[in-house]
Nucleic acid binder design. Structure first.
Length: 863
RNA sequence: GCCGGAGUGGUGAAACGGUAUACACGCAGCGUUCAGAACGCUGUAUCCGAAAGGGUGUGGAGGUUCGAUUCCUCUCUCCGGCACCA
């Protein structure tokens, strides 16, 4: 082989093509007229920290390969990108580097877009968006207003999660093991009045929708668990000597004949009401200690049960048993009714509690082990299936049957009512921070006094009229978090002082901002609706009236172009990380469902925005997720500079399965660079000739396999097959034709878009292959690009080999092989004879009892 | 504790129930070179053997099958998610 090595210069090639693509709007589809819309969406990045890291690049490249492939398959691919730049991530980074978030956003934006351009992804650069752009967050606020108008946004004083270092409240989804999702500080409880979204109203819809979408099972399971629907019964118990009724939720009413106590959550108001005399003091003290504790302390592993007796008793109607009523912190106020009925024989926690305080244990179920003795140890606690005992009319039934029977019975007697409970809580949406969209609400005390308001159930509250949006985030100097349960904006009368939209009197704006996850809950709709046409911009600035006459969509009047949305949505594929399984991926579904239920022309025609989701793997470094605090963030820039984006893309995609991710190390990246350069040299040096049958077979095989692998997101094996073809064709003795070269180049194009584009161009001008290159018309420009060429096809007839290798096994062990003409492989008896001969020495003295022959594949002798 | 996923060469990793280790990295030898870099060629699971050849091998133990990395049961280890949710 010729050892020419100077030719390939990635940086000049890549810069050249990135500029050409962007200038010609090569990858900006005509959203209105596209014939085969294919919306491929990638989760947009948080542009915080020091820049795009290789983990981001890995994810984005994988998504881009898919998009490029679909484009060559004839789809009009829309592949947008933007920045999720509002929110605590970015603000915390600004805090760290001591810069104003507005300033930092400008720096990050520039840097991220530079990096994103350098990766060579086929983004539509005419439709980028940033969540902190008033043109965007205006509509995030609009979304909030819709939530309010539909009764889905409300205020509630509640004990909420408070992160002391971020100095804001957090949603349940953002608390992991009692710690803040972002910085790991222990979350405290705080009584604050906050804005919530009623995601619980969509709990069943969110649950049921899961069965209709093509998502990884583990994400569906995570969402199912998070929603946590439990079907059971609310049972009412009378309290001896009191008017009060205690209501408990249970999924195991079948065991109710074994109920021996009641436990109340410390927050349950009944606890203090029922406690009397000496007991009252203890209960009060217990509740006070509880209030000061953190969730972390309360839920600590293996902690002994604590609690106090209130002195009161509830009556179990089934048995007449006087159940002592206790208060204990193992009972959660947020779940069910904040009270449980204790059946210590058949619930571990109840047993532990009963042991601690000497309460009676009654067995009512006998399990598989047949143990029917009194339950004395934790190991004996019977939580599984079994047969009922000591339970009157339930005796002998299995637990499932008994559960239905007893619920029917209780409902009939009026003791209780069937009920479903959910783990899912309403979405706490307000944040006491600066860097987010101000919540577009106004509170008027004048209206409040009169009991008036936009909504009957929320006197005094009005949403900001839609034509007054956005409520601009003011550029203030004291933007740092306060820590007093208010946002920095609460110090700015010039921001919050306003007039009531209803009565006109002095009123106050909400000063909290909304959660970052609201920003990202609808961005896919805005991508489709961005208008950056200069004529339009002028018109919307009041300098022209051209647009007013038309009924066309205007991005300054509407959040999204519903006609375009109908054409392109739901997105064909959504690609992103699985770490958002119960955060973003739940919220985005919820918001789509709400928008689907809008009572306006903007109502979405679908409920599930992403019928197909692909979860890419995570790139870690030294076994740990990349993060600034660990100091293991790898930025791709220096690798791109040294080897070119094509090499880095290939290298990342070759690491392993796209769904697996992996540990990043740069050993081997040079090997990939050598491969790209070899391809370059191959096209420079190898002459096109008559194609041989072997080459024809090889290229057809490669087309077949690479196509299948890309369809399966098995990029690493696709690249391996491209290498195999190279190894084959680089042999001096194997010739190729221009047509073969074209096919090969196309297969390579999604992975290495720049070098293939350069070679493609040369093939037309220098190598004189004009005829094979079809011109692609893109936008208003004519672009001749390999990325718009039809994907190569293969024909089965070329895949047939005239010689086949048949391995010979004896008792399943490989002992030899024969090479036969493929037409001969059909003749079983002949193959059998040949094979026997080939492994004669192994068969000597043995009796062949059975022969298994899989035509053209393998032959096995059983001896 | 519960629910997922994964354990294959020195390394990243391949294998519709049919030749285990494709492809690459690394390493070794050779060629090219004054020399190095780069490039090219050859070899590279492991054990016995000079070789031919043979034995053993996909975390471990069983099972189904003519044949198992692949399917089933049990078990160990690692990684992710959830967790005092009644």
């Amino acid at each position: 082989m010729n050892s020419d090595k100077q030719g390939y210069d990635p940086s000049s090639i890549e810069q050249k093509w990135q500029a050409i693509w962007e200038e010609n709007k090569t990858f900006s589809p005509d959203l209105k007229n596209a014939k085969n819309p294919y919306y491929t969406l990638m989760m947009f990045p948080y542009p915080s920290a020091e820049g795009l890291h290789v983990g981001n690049m890995y994810a984005f490249t994988g998504a881009d390969v898919h998009g490029r492939f679909m484009r060559m398959k004839g789809k009009d691919v829309f592949e947008p990108i933007g920045l999720d730049g509002f929110g605590i991530h970015s603000e915390n980074y600004a805090l760290k580097v001591g810069k104003h978030p507005v300033e930092q956003a400008k720096v990050s934006e520039k840097n991220f877009y530079r990096q994103l351009r350098a990766t060579g992804n086929a983004y539509d650069w005419t439709r980028i968006l940033e969540t902190y752009d008033p043109d965007y967050y205006r509509w995030t606020q609009w979304l909030f207003v819709q939530m309010f108008k539909k009764g889905l946004a409300y205020r509630k004083k509640a004990q909420v999660n408070w992160c002391p270092s971020d100095k804001t409240v957090l949603a349940d989804e953002q608390v992991i093991d009692g710690r803040c999702e972002r910085d790991g500080s222990i979350v405290e409880k705080k009584d604050l009045e906050q804005w919530f979204f009623k995601i619980t109203e969509y709990a069943d819809a969110l649950l049921n929708g899961l069965s209709q979408i093509d998502w990884p099972e583990k994400i569906k399971i995570a969402q199912r668990n998070w929603i946590g629907k439990k079907v059971g019964i609310n049972i009412k118990y009378k309290v001896e000597g009191h008017e009060e009724i205690i209501e408990v939720f249970t999924t195991r009413p079948d065991t109710n004949f074994g109920a021996t106590f009641i436990a109340l959550a410390p927050e349950n108001p009944l606890a203090l009401k029922l406690a009397a005399g000496e007991n009252k003091k203890d209960v009060e003290r217990y509740i006070n200690v509880f209030k000061k504790s953190t969730d972390q302390e309360r839920k600590e592993e293996g902690r002994e049960k604590t609690g106090f007796f209130t002195g009161a008793y509830a009556i179990n109607d089934l048995t007449g048993y006087k159940m002592p009523i206790w208060v204990s912190d193992f009972v959660l106020m947020e779940f069910g009714t904040g009270a449980v009925v204790g059946v210590p024989g058949h619930d571990r926690r109840d047993f532990e509690f009963a042991q601690e305080f000497g309460l009676e244990v009654i067995r009512v179920v006998v399990g598989k082990d047949g143990d029917s003795s009194p339950i004395k140890t934790v190991e004996q606690v019977q939580e599984e299936e079994g047969k009922m005992v000591n339970s009157d009319f339930l005796n002998g039934m299995d637990v499932h049957e008994a559960t239905e029977k007893i619920m029917d019975y209780m409902e009939g007697k009026g003791y209780g009512k069937r009920e479903a409970n959910y783990h899912l809580r309403d979405w706490l949406i307000s944040r006491q921070r600066y860097w987010g969209p101000p919540i577009p609400m106004i509170y008027c005390s004048n209206c409040a006094e009169k009991g008036k308001g936009e909504r009957e159930d929320m006197p005094g509250w009005h949403s900001v009229p839609e034509d007054q949006l956005p409520v601009l985030l003011p550029d203030v100097e004291d933007w740092r978090p306060q820590g007093e349960g208010t946002s920095p904006l609460a110090n700015h009368p010039e921001f919050y002082e306003t007039k009531c939209p209803s009565c006109g009197s002095e009123a106050k704006r909400e000063t909290d901002v909304s959660d970052t996850f609201l920003d990202s809950s609808w961005y896919y709709l805005r991508y489709l609706s961005i208008q950056k046409d200069p004529a339009f911009a002028k018109a919307s600035a009041g300098e022209g009236k051209k647009y007013e006459k038309s009924t066309e969509f205007r991005s300054d009047l509407m959040p999204y172009d519903i006609e375009i949305v109908k054409k392109w949505c739901p997105a064909k594929i959504y690609i992103g990380g699985a770490e958002h399984s119960v955060l973003h991926l739940l919220y985005v579904r919820f918001v789509a469902m709400v928008l689907h239920d809008l009572n306006s022309s903007l109502a979405l025609p679908f409920q599930e925005p992403f019928p197909k989701f692909f979860a890419h793997g995570l790139i870690v470094k030294d076994g740990a997720k990349m993060s600034k605090s660990r100091g293991n963030v790898v930025i791709p820039d220096k690798y791109i500079e040294k080897f070119g984006a094509d090499t880095v893309r290939l290298y990342l995609m070759f690491l392993g399965q796209f769904s697996d991710g992996g540990d990043f190390r740069d050993t081997g990246i040079e090997g990939m660079f050598r491969f790209v350069r070899r391809i370059w040299n191959l096209f420079e040096n190898k002459k096109f000739e008559q194609v041989s049958p072997e080459t024809l077979r090889m290229i057809n095989k490669t087309v077949k396999e690479v196509t299948r692998d890309i369809e399966d997101f098995s990029y690493n094996t696709a690249i391996a097959k491209l290498m195999e073809f190279y190894n084959f064709i680089s042999e001096e003795s194997n010739s190729w034709s221009g047509e073969t070269a074209v096919s090969y180049l196309k297969l390579f194009a999604p992975f290495a878009p720049h070098v293939t584009e350069e070679i493609w161009e040369k093939m037309q001008t220098v190598y004189g292959l004009q005829s094979t290159a079809k011109k692609a018309v893109v936008g208003s420009q004519k672009a001749v690009s390999v990325h718009f060429q039809p994907w190569p096809t293969f024909e089965e007839k070329y895949l047939v080999q005239d010689q086949v290798l048949i391995p010979i096994q004896i008792n399943g062990k490989r002992r030899g092989e024969i090479v036969v003409g493929s037409e001969k492989s059909e003749v079983r008896s002949w193959i059998e004879e040949k094979a026997k001969e080939a492994v004669r020495n192994h068969l000597e003295g043995k009796e062949v009892r059975k022969v298994v022959y899989v035509q053209g594949k393998i032959i096995n002798f059983v001896v």
